[in-house]
Nucleic acid binder design. Structure first.
Length: 357
DNA sequence: GGTTAGTAGCTTCTCTTTGG
DNA sequence: CCAAAGAGAAGCTACTAACC
């Protein structure tokens, strides 16, 4: 091996390799490689004739066997192919690395978001638990002195719970034990998603459970509950001349998290009652946010002001339930199912708002 | 169909370089 | 100094195309 290395050093210094036969392994000199590279750059696949011409025409290659020349070109093509593949893979690798970096960043961002939401959730649970305990104690000690409207603060989970409990108790006291078919409200579109649909469960045995579940669901999923809340105020109203009325309605939605007013719009609403008792409501939305009279700040939207009798709960196809909240819509008590008359006879009547839990 | 030359792909062997 | 890795020359096998 030492001898071969010495031979290589000799040939590297410029002398012609005269000892091909004395060692199996040889290294071609820089000059030889340069000559071969020149030919390769012009023709990577020289014919047998071209290779023979190369040996004859280039003295520094004359001591190399034709077979060796052939092998050199063969290996040279193989090396180039490997280098190109290596470059290609390197490029692909760079692209994937960049993509991976982006995905890692996105993952990191989402992880932080999850952590924040978990933290918020824990905080709200804690608030809810502590507020419930406070409410329970307070209701025993100071129910006579604390006004109900203070306890029923919708911004307070305890107040929300109180509203839900009252709603449930009131609803069950009126609905339990009565079996009626699902009834569609006159003048309203059918279907579980239609605002204003008025119905009550036929299978009363499960009403309590479903109602309890729904209220729990509302309390649990407070943000989505609030997201669907909106304040509706009749800004002005005048008679339409045929017994109906035209109202200018101001609607304001609320940001689920902050409960700050998020979006407002104006609507013209025409309402009339036909002779057969059907209620006709036509609405026309005015152009977007800020249209209509100079925008006025809506009064704070307090669901606590809605009386318990204003809630109606029913299960929804495919799971969940629908809750209807009472609004001011007076109908003749005789035109509604008997089970619901107590609700209708209340000054606070029927469904303008719903949410699905 | 058999022979020959050439090629691709893979492996082996040897030398050189590099890092501890 | 030495082991490991890299680079290059050569060997081997399978396959294809041209030729007789």
């Amino acid at each position: 091996m030492a001898m071969v290395a010495q031979l290589h050093r000799e040939s590297s210094s410029g002398s012609i390799n005269k000892h091909l036969d004395s060692g199996k392994y040889v290294r071609y000199t820089a000059e030889q490689v340069e000559a071969l590279e020149r030919v390769y750059s012009e023709c990577p696949k020289p014919s047998s004739l071209r290779r023979q011409q190369l040996i004859r025409g280039c003295p520094i290659l004359s001591n190399i066997e034709p077979k060796q020349i052939k092998v050199w070109f063969q290996n040279r093509r193989c090396r180039e192919k490997q280098r190109k593949e290596s470059v290609r893979l390197h490029s692909v690798n760079k692209k994937f690395s960049a993509m991976n970096k982006l995905l890692m960043e996105e993952n990191d961002r989402l992880q932080k978001q999850v952590s924040q939401l978990v933290c918020e959730n824990g905080y709200m649970r804690h608030q809810l638990q502590s507020a419930s305990a406070t409410t329970t104690d307070a209701s025993c000690e100071s129910a006579a002195t604390t006004p109900r409207h203070v306890l029923k603060d919708t911004n307070n989970p305890a107040g929300l719970l109180l509203i839900a409990e009252e709603t449930l108790a009131d609803f069950l006291s009126k609905a339990t034990g009565t079996a009626v078919d699902w009834v569609q409200m006159p003048g309203m579109k059918p279907g579980p998603d239609s605002v204003g649909i008025f119905a009550i469960s036929k299978s009363c045995g499960g009403v309590a459970a479903r109602a309890c579940g729904l209220i729990a669901e509302i309390l649990k999923d407070r943000s989505s509950w609030f997201r669907d809340c909106r304040s509706v105020e009749v800004f002005t109203m005048f008679p339409a001349g045929n017994g109906g009325t035209i109202e200018l309605v101001y609607t304001q939605t609320y940001a689920p998290t902050t409960l700050a007013p998020a979006r407002d719009f104006w609507t013209l609403r025409y309402t009339t009652t036909l002779e057969n008792g059907s209620l006709v409501i036509c609405e026309r939305s005015l152009s977007g946010t800020g249209a209509g009279p100079s925008t006025v700040a809506a009064p704070q939207f307090l669901r606590a002001e809605m009386l318990p009798s204003g809630y109606l709960i029913r299960p929804c196809e495919g799971g969940g339930s629908i809750i209807h909240i009472v609004d001011h819509l007076n109908l003749k008590a005789s035109s509604v199912p008997e089970v619901l008359r107590p609700l209708y006879e209340s000054p606070n009547i029927l469904a303008q708002k719903m949410t699905i839990a």
